Simulated assay, not measured.
Amino acid sequence: MPTLYLIRHGQASFGAADYDVLSEVGHEQAGALGHWFAEQGILPDLVAHGSLRRQKETLAGILRGMDRQLQPEEHPGLDEYDFGGLLKAKYAAGGEPEGMMTDHKSHFRTLRHTVAEWQRDEIPNPPETWAQFTTRVDDACRALMREGVETVFAVSSGGAISQAISALLETPGVHQTKMQLQMKNTAVNRIVFTPRSTYFHGFNETPHITAANAGRLLTYA
């Protein structure tokens, strides 16, 4: 059956001046995943990414690992929500937690609380509303799950992927955040689709990360 593989980008550059670029590990993760897909004979006839650099670099690495060349579609609806912009809106008057963009624990704790407020429309003047975010993610997925394609690779980000799954399962927003916080870099999530329906078929899978390489390749940010 036609399958949409929603893939989270590889490890980005957390704490750096430009987060939106893959680290050395991120490039290795992408290549390893592409190699695994090729070994399994899972070959896409449509590939896509959002507009973010880390998503584009991840897809390029996957295709190199598969030794395939395909022209990707760009769907901005696959982009991550602007967490930095949400923080600026929430803490416009100051009071932001120390280390929220450089310390992993502080960052994810702040993310959890901030997104919950955003989902309840409690943050004034956000970069986009929660409803706008969920709508664009849904529109992007619908555009990819179209007739005439069998295997779709789409590189996105943890928040957008988790929202796509949450919408499919019709779960409350809190579960979107829980899924996002456990999403591994280059994790594969599968949605099987037909013209009439869609089916959730796999979550947060990293078959290319094994006991032999997990110490280096298993990352979350």
Rank of each mutant, 00 (worst) to 15 (best):
R109A: 04
E122H: 10
T3P: 02
A131L: 10
I7T: 03
V192A: 12
R109F: 00
S23Q: 06
P195Q: 04
D79K: 03
T129A: 09
D18C: 08
F37L: 15
T3E: 11
V188A: 00
K105D: 00
L217Q: 07
N204I: 13
R216L: 06
L6S: 06
A212F: 04
E73W: 01
A16W: 03
G99N: 06
N189S: 14
A48Q: 10
G94M: 01
A32E: 13
D121Y: 10
I191Y: 02
S166I: 14
T110L: 08
K56N: 09
E122F: 14
P72I: 08
K88D: 00
E117H: 00
A89I: 08
Y220E: 00
H208T: 10
I191A: 03
L87N: 04
R136S: 14
F108V: 12
E98V: 11
Y220A: 03
A154I: 12
E117L: 11
G173H: 02
Q132C: 06
H107N: 14
A211V: 10
E74G: 13
H113S: 07
A140K: 15
R196S: 12
E39R: 15
K90T: 02
H107E: 01
T134K: 14
G26K: 13
Q69V: 12
P44V: 08
P72C: 04
I165Y: 10
P72N: 06
R190V: 15
T210W: 01
G34P: 07
V188L: 12
L4N: 07
T219P: 07
T135S: 12
L6N: 05
I7A: 01
E73N: 06
G50E: 03
L22R: 08
S13M: 11
D121N: 14
N125I: 10
G50M: 05
V21M: 05
F153M: 05
A12K: 13
H113A: 13
Y91W: 12
L6V: 06
H49R: 10
P72W: 08
L6E: 09
H208A: 12
N189P: 04
A38K: 12
Q71Y: 07
T171A: 13
H208M: 06
H75R: 15
D79R: 04
Q132T: 13
Q40W: 01
G15F: 09
S23R: 07
T219F: 12
T219N: 07
S23E: 08
F37G: 00
N125L: 13
D121V: 07
Q163A: 10
E150N: 12
K56R: 14
T135A: 15
K178C: 01
N204Y: 05
L33E: 09
V174M: 03
A12G: 11
E117F: 00
Q132F: 02
S166Y: 06
F153R: 08
R142T: 15
I209P: 02
A187R: 05
R216K: 15
A140V: 14
H9K: 12
